[in-house]
Nucleic acid binder design. Sequence first.
DNA 1: CTGGGTGCAAAATCTTTGCAGATCC
DNA 2: GGATCTGCAAAGATTTTGCACCCAG
Lengths: 129, 129
Amino acid sequence: MEESQKYRKSRQREKILEILHGTKTHPTADTIYLIMKNEYHDLSLGNVYRNLNILVETGKIRRLDFGSTFNRFDGNCEMHPHFVCEKCNSVRDLVLIDNFNPADFIKNLNGKTVKEYSLEFFGVCENCR
Amino acid sequence: MEESQKYRKSRQREKILEILHGTKTHPTADTIYLIMKNEYHDLSLGNVYRNLNILVETGKIRRLDFGSTFNRFDGNCEMHPHFVCEKCNSVRDLVLIDNFNPADFIKNLNGKTVKEYSLEFFGVCENCR
DNA sequence: CTGGGTGCAAAATCTTTGCAGATCC
DNA sequence: GGATCTGCAAAGATTTTGCACCCAG
């Protein structure tokens, strides 16, 4: 009764989680697929997508979206901002000062209930200057 | 030499701009297409996309992206945050207090040059509570 | 006239899904 | 054994693009 009964354990799903926990590169579904393909030779991309969706649904990972045509995924579910470099397309984690709440800076939040927010920066990273 | 010589004037492109300036609903390409279809009966969706891309490129409009599978567009190019209601899917403009700069709250910006940022809130709007 | 603009249809890209067989508990 | 998981392939959804014709300057 602790864990969801909805999903069984799956070696491939755990591998995806392991990959996402072991990197800060915020890979796309396809990148994850290619990494796993070395080990799971008959892996299908559709299954990677299925498992990524399950992991997002169960709150184990986060889906990121930066205006590109594809999603990236993040094994770190804590809310944190990112920096996207327009030259090398890398995505880096940023760290906020403590107790930062962007809703404090909005004038017209009125009766809206904020559950989440996303804060993303775009520019040129230190390696690409 | 004032305006870009790259693009000629186009009635349809101007109509798109007019629609985006006249609404706060942040419509999708398809919505814009449907609105225009009343007036331009043989309009094609491809052409709406082409013109939206040109308008984004020339800085006349902004492309928005909220993790959905499709883009929305905004005629207001001033940087401003949005609120996305998870119930009615509406997208509202938010207003920041003066002189707010989110980069001031990041600990590890290091040598990165920020050109833009996006700040989006998700939750339930006042009409959907 | 010349080169951008357009509709049309096909293609491209990313993601989801139906199905039948394999696997886990 | 029954539900979940998987690969495969097809389908979906959104966006882009090649082409031939049209039109603005």
